[in-house]
C-alpha cells in the first residue's frame, strides 16, 4: 500500500544506495541556503537532469509534485501581500510586492528541486534499503529506528484501522456528522491507539527476548564502484557550479545572468591560468 515504486530500473538503481543517499543530503544542504535566482535555476536544472536519469513513474511523480505545489501555491498567494517592497501590481488598493513574487518563485524552484533530487536519488531505492543506508551513513540511531519501525508497522496500523471500520460497517455503521457518528469514530480511533500501544509493548518484549540491548546495526551489504564515482563526480560538480554562481551573485548583487556568465568565464580562465602557472606550464 505504501511501498509502490516511484521510479523504474535505471542506471541510478545500479549505484550504491549509500552514495545516492549522501548525494541527496549534500544536494539539499547546498540548495537550502541559495539566494541567487540564477543559482536556484541551475540547481533545479541539475535536479531535473538526475530525475531524467532515474526514469520516474510519471503518475507517482505527478501526485508527489501536486502535493508539494499545493503548498507552494498557498505561499505564492500569501507572500506578495506579506513581504514589503515595491508594488508590482495593485488590486483594490492592495499592493502585491515584487519581492514577494520573487521569493515565491525562489521557494517554488527550491521545493520542486528538493522533490526532484529525492525522487531521483532516494526514491529509486526501496524503503528498507533507504533505512539500512541511513544506518550505514551513521545517521542518528533514533531517526533510523523510527524510520525502520514506521516502515514495518504503518501497514499493520492501516490494516488494524480497516479491520475496525469493517467491523463497525458490518454492524450497520455509516459515518455521518452526528453525535453517534463522532462517538463511534472516536471509540474506533481510541481503540486503534490502544492496540498500537499494546503492540509496541509486545514488540519491545520480543526485542528483549532476542537479547536486544539498545543498539542496532544493519547487516545489509553495500558496494561502491565506478558508477558511483561517476555519479558522485557529476552531482558534486553540479553542486560546485551552483555554489560558484551563488558566491559570484553575492559578491556582485544585481548582476544579470549574461554578465554573471561572463564573470564566471573570467574566473575560470584566471583559475586555469593560476593552475597552469602552479604546474609550471
Amino acid at each position: 500500500m505504501f511501498d509502490e515504486p516511484t521510479t523504474r530500473p535505471s542506471c541510478l538503481t545500479r549505484t550504491d544506495p549509500r552514495v545516492r543517499m549522501a548525494l541527496a543530503l549534500a544536494a539539499s544542504l547546498a540548495l537550502a541556503p541559495l539566494k541567487a535566482p540564477c543559482a536556484c535555476v541551475a540547481c533545479f536544472a541539475l535536479s531535473l537532469a538526475l530525475l531524467a536519469l532515474a526514469r520516474p513513474c510519471l503518475k507517482a511523480l505527478g501526485a508527489r509534485l501536486l502535493g508539494v505545489n499545493v503548498f507552494v501555491a498557498f505561499l505564492a498567494a500569501m507572500l506578495p501581500l506579506s513581504v514589503p517592497g515595491e508594488p508590482a501590481a495593485t488590486l483594490l488598493s492592495v499592493d502585491f510586492s515584487k519581492q514577494g513574487f520573487a521569493m515565491a518563485g525562489l521557494i517554488a524552484l527550491k521545493a520542486n528541486a528538493f522533490v526532484a533530487f529525492f525522487t531521483a536519488l532516494v526514491a529509486s531505492m526501496d524503503a528498507p534499503t533507504a533505512a539500512y543506508a541511513m544506518e550505514r551513513l551513521r545517521m542518528p540511531s533514533k531517526l533510523v529506528f523510527i524510520f525502520i519501525f514506521t516502515l514495518r508497522f504503518i501497514h499493520d496500523i492501516a490494516e488494524e484501522w480497516k479491520r475496525l471500520t469493517t467491523a463497525a460497517r458490518l454492524r450497520g455503521f455509516v459515518p455521518k456528522s452526528t453525535r453517534h457518528g463522532y462517538r463511534t469514530l472516536g471509540a474506533l480511533l481510541g481503540l486503534l491507539i490502544l492496540h498500537s500501544i499494546q503492540r509496541a509493548q509486545r514488540v519491545h518484549e520480543a526485542m528483549l527476548l532476542r537479547g536486544f540491548a539498545g543498539t542496532f546495526r544493519s547487516v545489509a551489504k553495500f558496494r561502491a564502484g565506478w558508477r558511483d564515482a561517476v555519479l558522485a563526480g557529476f552531482v558534486l560538480a553540479g553542486i560546485a557550479l551552483v555554489a560558484g554562481i551563488e558566491v559570484l551573485w553575492r559578491q556582485h548583487p544585481g548582476l544579470d545572468a549574461a554578465s554573471l556568465a561572463a564573470q564566471a568565464q573570467d574566473c575560470a580562465r584566471e583559475l586555469g591560468l593560476r593552475l597552469a602557472a602552479r604546474l609550471g606550464l
Binding site: A127, F149, R199, L208, L209, R210, G211, F216, S218, V219
Partner: peptide, 30 residues
Amino acid sequence: RCAVGYVLQSADDQLFFPTVLEDVAFGPLN
C-alpha cells in the same frame, strides 16, 4: 534470553524489521 529462544504465539510481534534477513540477523547481532 540469549540462550533460551522464545517463539511467541503471534509471529507478527516477533518480526519487527521490514525485511526477513535483517530480522533473522537481529538476534546474532545482539
